[in-house]
Nucleic acid binder design. Structure first.
Lengths: 186, 186
DNA sequence: ACCTGAACACCGTTCAAGT
DNA sequence: ACCTGAACACCGTTCAAGT
């Protein structure tokens, strides 16, 4: 990438992080370009779709969660590993309001810039889930899609200002529902 | 209301029901006016906000749920009553994609045209919840906001095409988590 | 190679003009 | 009373013109 292109890219990401934090995943692309002091076409070329921008904003988090899943897979307590990872997943999705809905839609759309990352997240969750089910700490009648749906539902709760304070409580409640032998007060 | 105004109103509602069913709560107001063969100003006066239109579309369902809550309050099995009502609440919110998010936001915004209905829904849920807790079939450490959040989370799942088939399963799972003595296979 | 910004087809809201 | 539609300030996308 040419030096000026690199500068524009970095500036767009920095501004987008601020604007998307404030306005959510539906933030105005035009506004981001304007605030970044960049032409509309430049924005469009660096990030052809809204999903491409969100992917860039979340890439570090995606990579972190993938790495973490790999580490947790070698840990002993499979049930705890799943719970820890799921909590991080929800926290990641709650970084930007409305991003969880885009992530779920991307699962079904191979053309989406978020598709690869979201499929990886689902696969990582599936591996941790399977291990916990073999261990016997998590119910056998749950699959990776159910897990994604539950994580997504909790992230949605976190997106609503009126409900966000309840996320941690409801996380505990729902985790308790998928464990066969929930530790009291987990 | 004058006869021509009434005709326009009814036509707008009929068209809106079709368009919002297809496009969700974010459907184009302009498009609805156009398809209804009505001027933009007419649309605006009958439904000054998007919430006003959604409220009109859902009024029958709101009234039905309020009535149902009243009836269920006099039934014997308080736990079952709560579960049945919550299932209907989720089904209602899933009639139009995205409406649950508008409903939750309206709880916090007294100016919203949805505020009164949503507050009534919450109050109805709160009464059924309290009865079930007195009966002892539902955990005591849950309040009406938690119930609304759980119902909303399930409605959000129902809004996502990729996850909608799981709503019934996850409803059962989550209901199990709030019951102190869940009947097997409820 | 990369950038800019005008042009286009949308959107919701407001309001002057009509019947 | 009620309706219409032009005007306005937005939006995302496309693309011709510049450096």
């Amino acid at each position: 990438m040419r030096a000026d292109a690199r500068k524009n890219y970095d500036q767009l990401i920095a501004v987008a992080r601020t604007v998307v934090t404030a306005d959510g995943a539906g933030a105005s692309m035009r506004d981001i370009a304007r605030r970044a002091g960049v032409g509309l076409g430049t924005m469009q070329r660096h990030f052809p779709t809204r999903e491409a921008l969100l992917e860039a904003l979340l890439r570090t988090s995606f990579d972190g969660l993938t790495t973490k899943a790999g580490e947790l897979e070698t840990s002993d307590a499979a049930g705890d590993a799943l719970v820890w990872w799921l909590r991080d997943f929800v926290a990641m999705a709650d970084k930007y309001q409305g991003v969880i809905t885009a992530m779920v839609a991307a699962l079904e759309d191979p053309e989406s810039a978020l598709h690869a990352s979201c499929t990886m997240m689902k696969a990582a969750g599936a591996r941790l889930l399977a291990r916990a089910q073999v261990e016997g700490t998590v119910r056998a009648d749950i699959d990776a899609t159910d897990l994604y749906a539950l994580g997504g539902a909790l992230a949605w709760v976190g997106d609503q200002p009126a409900l966000a304070p309840r996320v941690e409580r409801l996380f505990t409640l729902i985790v308790g529902a998928i464990m066969t032998n929930p530790a009291p007060g987990r």
